[in-house]
């Protein structure tokens, strides 16, 4: 799938989570997403960036404005080399948390995106990819 712009940011602190939100907004506008769609993908990005920081021990995000024929969209990939997730189905379930959260981040990010995929290996790390297309 052709990409017109790619950006990468480190996620090492809660200030970086703010930067992820800001850069996601900039590129969502570039991809032509509506205000509601921008809000959805920024919120999903905030959830996933915080997971990368809190559970993955930090990592990075890759942001891409993508094209598929005449469709435009934004794809975000979060990657860390943290402990990984033992049971993905359990982690995806609303209300499941090993921290002090509400357990809404992963399930919520999936609902707020058009595409969602997660890969995780114990002791290796976690990679979450989401995309939102211009309606």
């Amino acid at each position: 799938m052709p990409t017109t712009r790619t950006d990468r940011l480190d996620i090492r602190s809660s200030d970086d989570v703010v930067k992820v939100r800001q850069q996601t907004r900039t590129m969502a506008v570039e991809a032509g997403l509506s205000l509601v769609d921008q809000t959805k993908i920024i919120t999903a990005a905030s959830e996933l960036a915080r997971n990368t920081l809190d559970y993955g021990g930090g990592g990075e995000i890759c942001l891409e404005v993508i094209h598929d024929g005449s469709r435009r969209g934004l794809r975000l990939t979060f990657e860390d080399r943290g402990p990984g997730i033992a049971d993905l189905a359990q982690a995806m379930r609303d209300g499941f948390t090993t921290g002090s959260g509400l357990g809404l981040g992963l399930g919520g990010a999936k609902r707020l995106s058009n595409e969602f995929s997660i890969e995780s290996k114990l002791g290796i790390g976690t990679k979450v990819t989401i995309a939102r297309w211009k309606a």
Partner: peptide, 14 residues
């Protein structure tokens, strides 16, 4: 609260 924020919060599950 902005309307887009309210819509998103509900979908997030909050």
């Amino acid at each position: 609260m902005r309307p887009a924020v309210a819509i998103t919060l509900v979908e997030l599950g909050l």
